[in-house]
Nucleic acid binder design. Structure first.
Lengths: 163, 163
DNA sequence: TATTGTTATACTCTATAACTATA
DNA sequence: TATAGTTATAGAGTATAACAATA
């Protein structure tokens, strides 16, 4: 079943390769962040709160396209570990604004290191110039397909909404 | 929360973009093949049986890295619809060899058309030369990371096995 | 009456492992 | 005793939708 001289054609087209390599990238990243005690969605939220602190939960949840039920338990876990903090909004006492604690900021730095290592591993087969071009094309495709910067859609999104 | 002039940096690195665009590619493909009444794994199996007919189930399952339990119900569904056929192997009567029926071959042609449409949509933002380069780099990355040609790992694979 | 956050429930998907028939 | 295929079961993860507090 495994030819040593696998035909190039067997790899399939760009779309299939994107799905395959993308799934691998997600899986490998999950493994790496688990060593810092985080799941990929948690890491995504951390990054988001670090970039734009003090927003209401629903804003983050909407941006990450995550249902509220899932989002709440995620914040619960991070708050129990003292990474993230909920603060009642003064203007609207229903809303919870999210902030990173000092521990959260420290974790963010670890997370950044993990991200760099992952990035380098994924791009190991490419030289710096190829790496830049690849990134530019991926951004172009993502924008063309109407994806949200920094938001991992996962598989839960209904395709066809904009396709 | 949504800047009109989103900073390029907000898209993240190559690894994140691969995961994001890859998830989208998988999701959009799932939507397309569902119009032909198939799930993505079913489409993958169909392609595999078309390429190498007459192998035992366990060979396909192993190649697709799919647990037997999941594989059996998948074949059940395809056989009930008369797309795929199980034949007892003469040499080893425990084994089931898989073959496409005429209907299966016809469906394969539809599937090929669906695949081409999907491929074109995913690459709409790229010119032909960029498209070729992108494919070559993705193949290089996939090979470098030890991925199997034509096999979609999904998220079920234990990362770290070869990372 | 609508909205923010929360909780409860029900459902889908998956792998694990027991089982059968051949070898 | 080991292996191909099958079936049963239990667990994780998810979304849907009911709920409480505030607007």
């Amino acid at each position: 079943m495994t030819d040593k001289t696998t035909e190039d054609r067997a790899w399939g087209g760009v779309a299939f390769l994107l799905a395959q390599v993308g799934a691998y990238a997600a899986s490998a990243f999950a493994e790496r962040v688990s060593e810092v005690g985080l799941t990929p969605p948690q890491a995504g939220l951390l990054r988001l709160v670090a970039m734009r602190p003090g927003q209401a939960q629903r804003a983050y949840a909407a941006y990450l396209r995550m249902p509220p039920s899932r989002f709440v338990s995620m914040v619960d876990a991070l708050e129990e570990r003292g990474i993230v903090e909920r603060r009642r909004a003064a203007s609207d006492r229903r809303a919870n604004e999210l902030h990173l604690t000092d521990a959260g900021n420290a974790l963010m730095r670890q997370l950044a290191a993990v991200g760099r290592a992952h990035e380098d591993a994924m791009c190991a087969a490419l030289d710096p110039e190829e790496r830049r071009s690849l990134r530019a094309w991926l951004v172009r495709i993502a924008a063309d397909r109407g994806l949200t910067p920094g938001a991992h859609p996962g598989y839960r999104r209904r395709p066809g909404d904009d396709d």
